[in-house]
Design a protein around this nucleic acid. Structure first.
Lengths: 141, 141
DNA sequence: TCAAAAGTTTAGCATTGTCTAAACCTTATG
DNA sequence: CATAAGGTTTAGACAATGCTAAACTTTTGA
């Protein structure tokens, strides 16, 4: 065989990533939204999260338990949800990525709506290298 | 309230997509790989798919059943897997998208490896509008 | 103040995608 | 041409994520 193995190795890696990191993606989405809500209103409540994300309350509660186990959020029963230090770090990381991707898409000439929607999806699949290239493009173009 | 609802509507739309379309993404990944294998070897066998994707044989078998129900692939028991007309259409669509995204990333200046890996992930989250902008960029830059 | 409304949690179920192990066909070889 | 090797399918389990309905707690307002 010649040069086919590297290619399939990469594909497998990319594919495996989609499996293993899907959970991380969800965590990031929740955590980012919680950070937004705290910034906006001072606290993040289950109902608000559920409404913004379009899921049922019960789903949010279950997810919060998981995020809590992962050390990303803190909460007392029947109280609002807050982020741990690690949670804030993740939220800020995500926000930064998000802003770069969204700004980049705008610079590329897509509409504001598309930039917003696409950047949500793309955000989780952009490596540090690509992110850097996007940032460079915005500065230099 | 002012201008906060549109934003949350968009977010919810983007988020919902991740749930409902995750399956479609998987289907596309499988279908694209099957097309590649057929091009390369004339047929796609379960084991090959499993190896390239890094999953177990059983997983492939189960997925093939689903793809078959969806009218994307055809197969006889214990035989290789082939694509239906619709399956080919999906594979070609995906390949086209993939090539645009990968080419775009290369044009942006990222390494070949990163372009390959990132384009796998990004491919499924790029709207027609963004795709067009990427194609334009490659031509004009 | 206390009952209704609003929010949260728990319980139980469905679906999806993955795995391992075992049973089952097909192909290749001695 | 019989059997071993190799692919494929099936069975059963599990984790993740979602849902609805019901129970429970907190807040609000008459």
């Amino acid at each position: 065989m010649k040069r086919k193995i590297p290619s399939s190795k990469l594909r497998s890696a990319a594919f495996t990533r989609t499996r293993a990191d899907h959970q991380a993606e969800l965590s990031q989405d929740y955590v980012e939204l919680i950070a937004e809500l705290i910034d906006e209103k001072g606290e993040a409540r289950g109902t608000d999260i559920a409404m913004r994300l379009g899921v049922a309350n019960a789903t949010v509660a279950k997810t919060m338990k998981r995020l809590s186990d992962q050390g990303l959020v803190e909460q007392e029963p029947y109280r609002a949800i807050f982020l741990t230090g690690e949670g804030w770090k993740m939220a800020e990381d995500g926000k930064r990525k998000h802003q770069i991707v969204e700004g980049f898409l705008l610079a590329l000439g897509v509409s504001a709506e598309t930039a917003q929607v696409d950047s949500e999806g793309i955000e989780h699949h952009v490596s540090a290298e690509t992110l850097k290239a996007m940032a460079r493009f915005m500065v230099r173009r």
